[in-house]
Design a protein around this nucleic acid. Structure first.
Length: 855
RNA sequence: GCGGCUAUGGUGGAAUUGGUAGACACGCUGGUUUUAGGUACCAGUGAGGCAACUCAUGGGGGUUCGAGUCCCUCUAGCCGCACCA
């Protein structure tokens, strides 16, 4: 009787061996091909969760596989350690954010180490390390010097109770997520990165990223939101139709509809609206009612169109003596285009609704053949221009071209491209972030802090008992002097958005000596770009777009030469689990449930529990399984194997107890096979030339599966690779060698099995490798290459169809020709047709695959 | 509202990319071993039929010698964006 696999002892043993032999420490070596595999680094929230287990297992399979393939692999790990949860913990539990963060890192590092990941821990860092943010401050300065950073006033979500800015995601139904207070729109002076300047490059370079999911590229494309149109400049007239010497700029993508324009509208935030409000109380009131309530975006989109007519007009540029009234309207966004439009009610649904409400002219200028007389909604389709002077009869496309050149000729407008993408606001009124290396001098100058005064470090003595930014109200921290002029100065008390931290961390890993703050281009030149990035799809836009921008921005500032940081991207699915609730609707942890005859009860209270649908694991629904508990019960290999089985990595996986037990069963099956066959490896086996059928069979299956598993790993089909390995394992476990040749083949088969298991379940594989007498560490062994001669068989199966329906399967020599097969078919009862070939219309023959007789 | 993805047994999912549908696993049924089984092993398991066979990849249509795979259309579910001029 073979004992169960003792993972508790064996997993520790190999983790120790890998670590002491520096097996996964990466060294720059220009003579070797590199492979940079990276998973999105974790936020140190407390403990690792199953999502991390899935993410890092997937990455580790790739890392270990690529090492086997002979690549110089970089597989690092670090911590996305700045951010709000640390400050919230500070407020709630009176613990310093640094202490909270570093404690969590300790815990999570030790948890990750239990998983046996092949990570180069020598390159580990946290973004809240002084060294890291020191370097980030230098990068900020570089971007500042290269005119990629600027400061401007902008509207932000302001929580009046917590005295802080909130991100859009933190505003729930118009209220602050923590305080519950009504969120205000407040104008603040904020730092921005000029990501908009890179919009075109960010868009067009998506085409190079052929190893990215189409879905993510499309999301980024939509987010960038390029649209081509026309910029127009109107003269503004007063109520007496006299020139005011002011102008109104508008942007439109439909210049072709210009003859249908019946009004203009500007945003309540538009400078012109503000100017009018100075002397007009009703305008002031209107603007105030529009700017106060920030509700969620969907309901904003459904809000009824409202407007206020001003006393101003613009003259239609092509229809003399036609004046369009200017409205201030709630549906015009200030931060898209110019914050002003001309309204063409017949061909834009919003303008249509607005015109109906305020009784404005609806003039149709595009007509489609089969159209009703009266428009009941805006017509946005293709058609022919009418009521449009010189544009009449043209298609939409033709009219666009024609009108733009006409407007350009008249110097009234010009072709323009607009992007939905907005500049990236990076100021946060927070303590736990990277200080911005800027001082405001008493003479009004804004200057960067000189390099020899960096890093600007966060003060330790901070007070979280009051809401707001502790840096702002710190007694001394912000007061300083300018070393160049001796003038008094005040530090910038805003810190950088944490997305800045994660926009270049993958470059920092490339530093040979991670503790040095030097950032060498030659290191980047060797290791960058990341060959394979793995993470959740929830970062499809922000993190991935910001990182792409940052690489480009650094490149144009002379740092690195990377235009795309991530060559390959894989977005893995989520880990789900059934949910459980009491009848009162309180969530219950799965670990507190017991089951009897398909009815669920609370383990302690015996209360009946209702089982709900499987949803992605979340603390709030309590449908979480603690990875550490699983690892201590079944071991890391079982957890890893389960994560790779069944579900394709890109889709959601459902965590199940029976699935984990199945994985544990498999681990032991391999363990049993190795122990039962270990004597095979003790002596050399003499072989002979004559090979049995059995021998050919095991050779064929082994090499076929080796080939398949290799392809499956390359194409991220880990679940299929797992299935193939099951097949091989099942075959080996029932294989009974009859002679020395068979034994020799079995040995090879077992060796291959052990080698291809290593990326997935490395502890077991290493232990097996040592049992069968393999040299050195298994993780340093090359990946085996399948031998094509064993895969090719003399006899193959060919499918016989009649009219496309399968009638028989014929075993025949490889590469047999059609005639030979037809001959053979004459002996088969169920296929009568071949006896009289005159009735056969056609024969479709695909060599070694199929023969289809059409009658 | 706009854009996208997905749909295969009781379940998760395979299918060499247009060529034997259901690999592999879970579950279930029966059997053997065991003091016991939430163990191990063996056999069976898409549906219908005694059978030869027939029907089956969300529904309907099409292209093709041949369709889970390609095209059209409908339905359902999921995801992203959201007054973007």
């Amino acid at each position: 009787m073979i004992e169960k696999f003792n993972f508790k002892v064996i997993e520790k043993k190999w983790q120790h061996k890998w670590s002491e032999s520096d097996s996964f420490v990466a060294k720059k070596d220009l003579s070797k091909k590199k492979f940079y595999i990276l998973e999105m680094f974790p936020y140190p929230s407390g403990k690792i969760h199953m999502g991390h287990v899935r993410n890092y297992t997937l990455g580790d399979v790739i890392a270990r596989y690529k090492r086997g393939k002979g690549f110089n692999v970089l597989h690092p790990m670090g911590w996305d350690a700045f951010g709000m949860p640390a400050e919230n913990a500070a407020m709630q539990n009176n613990i310093h954010p640094a202490e909270w963060t570093y404690e969590n890192i300790e815990t999570m590092r030790s948890q990750l180490k239990l998983m046996g990941l092949s990570i180069d821990w020598s390159r580990e860092f946290a973004t809240c390390d002084q060294d890291y943010y020191h370097h980030q401050q230098k990068l900020f300065k570089k971007l500042y010097e290269n005119d990629i950073v600027y400061k401007k006033k902008s509207y932000v979500n302001w929580d009046p109770v917590d005295n802080t800015v909130l991100a859009n995601e933190q505003v729930i139904d118009g209220k602050g997520w923590r305080s519950g207070a009504d969120v205000e729109q407040r104008e603040l002076s904020q730092w921005f990165f000029k990501i908009k300047d890179y919009a075109e490059e960010l868009l067009s370079d998506l085409d190079i990223l052929d190893k990215w999911p189409e879905k993510v590229k499309l999301m980024q494309k939509n987010w960038i939101g390029k649209s081509e149109g026309c910029h127009l400049c109107f003269e503004i007239f007063d109520s007496n139709k006299d020139k005011t010497n002011q102008q109104l700029d508008i942007f439109t993508t439909r210049p072709d509809t210009i003859f249908g324009a019946s009004f203009c509208a500007i945003s309540p935030m538009h400078p012109l609206a503000k100017k009018i409000s100075e002397t007009n109380e009703s305008v002031t009131n209107f603007i105030n009612t529009q700017s106060s309530s920030a509700v969620n975006e969907e309901s904003i989109a459904r809000t009824e169109k409202e407007g206020l007519k001003t006393d101003l007009f613009v003259e239609h540029p092509l229809k003399k003596d036609t004046f369009l009234p200017i409205y201030i309207a709630n549906f015009i966004l200030m931060d898209y285009g110019t914050g002003a439009i001309y309204g063409v009610p017949a061909h834009d649904q919003r303008d249509f609704e607005f015109a109906k409400k305020y009784d404005l002219e609806i003039l149709q200028v595009i007509k489609n053949k089969n159209m009703d007389e009266e428009l009941t909604e805006a017509f946005t389709g293709e058609g022919e221009l009418i009521n449009s002077d010189f544009l009449n009869g043209m298609s939409v496309e033709e009219a666009k071209k024609c009108i733009i050149s006409k407007l350009e000729e008249l110097k009234l407008g010009k072709k323009e491209i607009n992007y939905r993408l907005r500049d990236w606001g990076i100021s946060r009124q927070r303590y736990w972030g990277c200080p911005i290396p800027i001082i405001y001098r008493e003479d009004g100058e804004i200057v960067t802090v000189p390099d020899n005064e960096l890093p600007i470090t966060l003060p330790d003595d901070v007070d979280f008992s009051k809401p707001g930014n502790p840096l702002e109200r710190h007694p001394t921290w912000k007061y300083t002097t300018c070393s160049e002029t001796g003038l008094k100065a005040i530090r910038e008390t805003d810190t950088l958005d944490t997305f800045v931290d994660s926009s270049w961390y993958f470059m920092k890993y490339c530093s040979d000596d991670i503790k040095m703050s030097n950032f060498k281009n030659e290191d980047l030149d060797y290791w960058m770009s990341v060959d394979q990035y793995v993470g959740g799809v929830e970062h499809a836009i922000l993190h991935l777009l910001y990182s792409r921008f940052f690489s480009k921005a650094l490149k144009s500032s002379g740092i690195g030469n990377i235009s795309e940081p991530f060559n390959g991207l894989f977005t893995q699915g989520m880990v789900c689990h059934e949910t459980y609730k009491t009848k009162k609707g309180e969530w219950v942890f799965p670990s507190d449930i017991k089951e009897k005859d398909n009815i669920f009860f609370h383990r302690e209270t015996n209360e009946e529990i209702i089982k709900g649908p499987s949803e992605s694991m979340s603390k709030s629904k309590k449908n979480v399984i603690d990875p550490e508990a699983i690892i201590s019960m079944y071991g890391a290999d079982t957890a890893r194997w389960f994560m790779l089985s069944d579900s394709p990595p890109g889709r959601d996986i459902n965590w199940s107890e029976s699935g984990v037990r199945g994985s544990w069963k498999f681990i032991n099956k391999v363990w049993t096979i190795i122990n039962e066959n270990k004597n095979l490896f003790e002596t050399k086996i003499e072989t002979t030339e004559i090979k049995s059928k059995k021998y050919n069979e095991i050779k064929k299956i082994t090499h076929k599966i080796l080939k398949d598993v290799t392809n499956n790993i390359e194409s991220f089909q880990m679940n299929v690779a797992v299935a193939k390995i099951y097949e091989l394992t099942n075959f080996i476990s029932t294989f009974r060698p009859e002679n020395n040749n068979d034994k020799d083949a079995l040995k090879e088969s077992i060796e291959i099995l052990v080698r291809i298991l290593e990326p997935m379940i490395p502890h077991l594989a290493e232990e097996c490798w040592s049992i069968i007498g393999g040299n050195d560490l298994l993780c340093k062994q090359p990946w085996p290459i399948f031998d094509a001669q064993y895969i090719q068989d003399d006899m193959i199966q060919i499918v016989i169809q009649v009219n496309g329906k399968k009638k028989a399967v014929l075993e025949i020599e490889n590469d047999s020709e059609q005639d030979k097969i037809i001959e053979k078919l004459k002996n088969i009862e169920s296929i009568q047709v071949v006896k009289d070939l005159s009735k056969v219309k056609k024969i479709i023959f695909v060599k070694n695959k199929i023969l289809n007789i059409v009658i």
